[in-house]
Design a protein around this nucleic acid. Structure first.
Length: 778
DNA sequence: TGTAACGTGTTT
DNA sequence: AAACACGTTACA
């Protein structure tokens, strides 16, 4: 009997049966669920349940009160039948109960008493996912056999006995994965591992990856047309007509370019040279694979020969490339789990939908290895499909009533999101921009397209373009996807790069970091695949303060988790099809986010801000958000209405916003009133292209008693045709105003601007930087 | 002893 | 396959 927890199998079983008979309120046909033995009972142990780690982000969160399971809870007025944890509180690293003991020595885990990583591992409790035995690896003493650590679940492995016997079991994972695959609302569908395993035609050891970058086909849809910018950088009114255009978003060339592949990397003489002295072999192989492995929770050691073989197959390679586009996506890359990470019980679960079981290869290592997953073409495709479907469902379910109906073409066979870009050329060769980290501070696997970033007007305005349409499917209420991330390594990265000969590289980490700082995110991605040390170094959030997914056609769960792991200060999701759930999920996990750009997103998505708190947010860009009008602004700016635990803050959720970009919105003075009341720190306000904005609006913003009167430094009213010369008089009240953009305001005259300058010259010198663009001369 | 919720069987 | 259901574990 392998059970190492308190309790006994037989007792457990009989007691279960008895209790079931006694307790079950509604007898059902057949055996009762929880009482029945696990199906893998043939193995030596009965798996006992794990319990919350109580430390992970999910565990410390309060119940959302909104999810399916919360609604079931009695405390939220539900019947309490489902007895499931809140979706938002699914532990990402469930631990063995603390009553667990080693089946051999009957003692608990002793890793806390040990210093060395190896000792820690040998004396920590490990639960075999096959036989369910919980042992100290040191107590097993099965020589010549290696256990395979399951990186997804703390203290979980395939013990050497099972491993050696070639048994395969269910792939365990934390509950964080449970709903990633098989619960309502899942974005991630569990695949069929055994079937796949049976597919001898492909590398049977591959574990399907959770997803891949969707392959886009020529797709078309309708989009609202935001204003275009003419070649001379002058704004012109947004065409009202709908434009249809086909565009193959991922043509092969593009895809080719987008893929930063290991193969290319390893063939790169530069890297070969660079890495010559860097420790390679197993460690680097792991790092390399892990990195490819994306979340790499259960990386499977693979030899280079096999990998080469796989790459040798052109078709396979093409598919793999797709997967790798996602896998290599630095935003989703896992800092390589060093022993400290893999062996400790820190949360490691990540977004997953990978199939359950896999066989594993025998490697040279005597001790526990990590399993490696490789993308599986079919599964990836299926998964991609499932993902998109679920995103659609989520979107549909959560879409605000205000959402404008968007015409969507019939789904392709893959039901991938329909997107249209107005102008193919706009999406053309953007790669030259890649050198600019500021503008392109995004791994280019993340960005399928580079925005033109023309900013003819105002500060930092993103270029309006077509809105990617969220995938659409019949409305169906679903829950929040269970997309769990693995946090960055807990232990600090090594200070120096370990070399083959056991020594350390002469250059210190911080020096490397300075070098890395010069690299684009794309280049960082490449570096991350070099070795596990670089992988961790390059994941340093200092290198990822800005993540730009502007116009990224598909925000995938992998990207989301990658974003979380890098904890950017600035996140640009403009013109993406991000869903409300995704955005909500993100915001709740980016407590340090200061800049959030959502221009061109749907209100359905942006409404996530209504229920999520981002107290540090300083810049909010919601330009051209479809459906964002006064009512929505009110929702956005009003304090939380619920009084759920942890939601006791009655202040405006966006109270600290200093830079608010509202260009192209149909908002009126009602919104401005709210803004002037709720955003005391508002310094920069972009109201360009807001056709309802008029002199009275300016009056409101600059009225006595408003905070905006003194806080406003920059205001953009360009292309606000109702604004007249009279507004300039109002601006005279503003104590801090530095820039007033009235360009292309038909009713504003140059003469009035000059008059303003003349009158202000006594106190604050202004100048006309451009026609009707007033700027404080300093 | 009470509450939360894991894990799996049943139902839809 | 997803959703529902619930016995029983884990723990305060």
């Amino acid at each position: 009997m392998a059970l190492s927890l308190s309790g006994d199998d037989e007792e457990y079983d009989s007691e279960s049966e008895q209790q079931r008979a006694a307790n079950r309120p509604k007898p059902k046909v057949g055996t009762s669920a929880a009482v029945k033995l696990p199906s893998n009972r043939s193995s030596s142990g009965a798996r006992r349940r794990r319990t919350r780690c109580r430390k992970c982000e999910a565990c410390v969160r309060t119940e959302c009160g909104e999810c399916h399971f919360c609604k079931d809870m009695k405390k939220f007025g539900g019947p309490g039948r489902m007895k499931q944890s809140c979706i938002m509180r699914q532990c990402i690293a469930p631990v063995l109960p603390h009553t667990a003991v080693c089946v051999v020595c009957k003692e608990a885990g002793k890793e806390d008493t040990l210093e060395e990583e190896e000792d820690k591992f040998n004396f920590m409790l490990m639960e075999c996912s096959i036989c369910n035995e919980i042992v100290h690896p040191n107590c097993l003493k099965v020589n010549e056999a290696s256990g395979v650590v399951n990186d997804e679940l703390p203290n979980c492995w395939e013990c050497p006995k099972c491993n050696h016997a070639g048994k395969s079991g269910k792939q365990k994972r934390g509950p964080g994965f449970k709903y990633a695959s098989n619960l309502p609302g899942s974005l991630l569908r569990e695949q069929k591992p055994l079937k796949e395993e049976g597919d001898a035609s492909t590398a049977v050891k591959r574990r399907p990856d959770r997803e891949e970058t969707p392959r886009y086909r020529p797709e078309e849809t309708l989009h609202r047309q935001p204003p275009l910018l003419s070649p001379c950088n002058l704004p012109r009114p947004r065409p009202e007509d709908k434009l249809r255009k086909k565009r193959k978003l991922f043509d092969d060339d593009e895809e080719e370019d987008l893929g930063v592949r290991k193969k290319e990397k390893s063939d790169d003489p530069y890297f070969s040279k660079l890495l010559h002295h860097i420790k390679t072999e197993e460690e680097d192989e792991d790092a390399y694979e892990e990195e490819e492995d994306e979340e790499g929770r259960v990386p499977h050691f693979r030899g280079g020969v096999e990998r080469k073989g796989r790459f040798g197959d052109p078709e396979e390679e093409a598919e793999e490339r797709d997967s790798r586009n996602a896998l290599l996506n630095p935003s989703v890359k896992t800092p390589f789990g060093d022993s400290d990470q893999s062996l400790c019980s820190s949360p490691q679960a990540g977004p997953s939908s990978e199939a359950g079981s896999e066989t594993q290869e025998k490697g040279p290592r005597p001790k526990a290895r990590r399993k490696r997953r490789l993308p599986n073409r079919e599964l990836s495709r299926e998964l991609s499909k499932a993902l998109n479907q679920e995103i659609q469902k989520t979107e549909d379910c959560l879409a605000n009533e205000n959402r404008q109906p968007l015409k969507v073409e019939p789904e392709t066979e893959n039901e991938e999101p329909k997107r249209l870009f107005r102008n193919g050329s706009e999406l053309g060769d953007q790669r030259p921009h890649l050198k600019n980290k500021e503008m392109n501070g995004t791994p280019w696997e993340l960005r399928h397209f580079y925005p033109s970033q023309i900013t003819p007007l105002g500060f930092n305005r993103s270029t309006p373009t077509n809105r990617p349409v969220p995938p659409h499917s019949p409305p169906k209420c679903v829950q929040m996807e269970r997309h769990v991330i693995r946090p960055p390594p807990i232990s600090p990265p090594p200070d120096r790069l370990p070399l083959k000969d056991g020594k350390s590289h002469v250059i210190q980490r911080e020096v490397w970091m300075k070098i890395f700082d010069y690299l684009t995110h794309q280049e960082l991605c490449v570096c991350m695949s070099v070795c596990k040390t670089w992988n961790r170094w390059c994941c340093d959030k200092r290198l990822w303060t800005k993540i730009d997914l502007n116009r990224c056609t598909s925000i995938t769960p992998l990207m989301l988790s990658g974003i979380i792991r890098r904890q950017p200060v600035s996140l640009d999701l403009s013109w993406t099809n991000i869903s409300k759930k995704q955005l909500s999920w993100l915001i709740n996990r980016l407590p340090g986010l200061r800049v959030l750009k959502l221009s061109g997103c749907s209100w359905a998505a942006v409404s996530a801000l209504c229920t999520s708190s981002c107290p540090l947010l300083r810049t909010l860009d919601v330009q051209w958000v479809e459906g964002l009008k006064d009512a929505q602004m009110r929702d956005l700016l009003s304090p939380p209405t619920d009084n759920r635990p942890g939601q006791l803050d009655n202040r405006c959720k966006l109270r600290n916003v200093e830079d608010l970009r509202l260009a192209g919105l149909d908002i009126t003075d009602a919104s401005l009133r709210l803004i002037s009341r709720q955003m005391p720190s508002l310094s920069m306000l972009d109201l360009s292209y807001c056709n309802h904005i008029n002199d009275q609006s300016v009056n409101l913003l600059t009225a006595a008693g408003t905070t905006t009167r003194d806080s406003l430094t920059d205001i953009n009213l360009s292309v606000c045709n109702r604004v007249t010369d009279h507004s300039l008089n109002f601006f005279k009240r503003c104590g801090s105003i530095c820039q007033i953009d009235l360009r292309f305001c038909k009713q504003v005259t140059r003469a009035a601007c000059e008059r303003f300058i003349a009158e202000m010259s006594v106190s604050v010198p202004f100048r006309l930087k451009e026609d009707k663009l007033l700027q404080k001369a300093s």
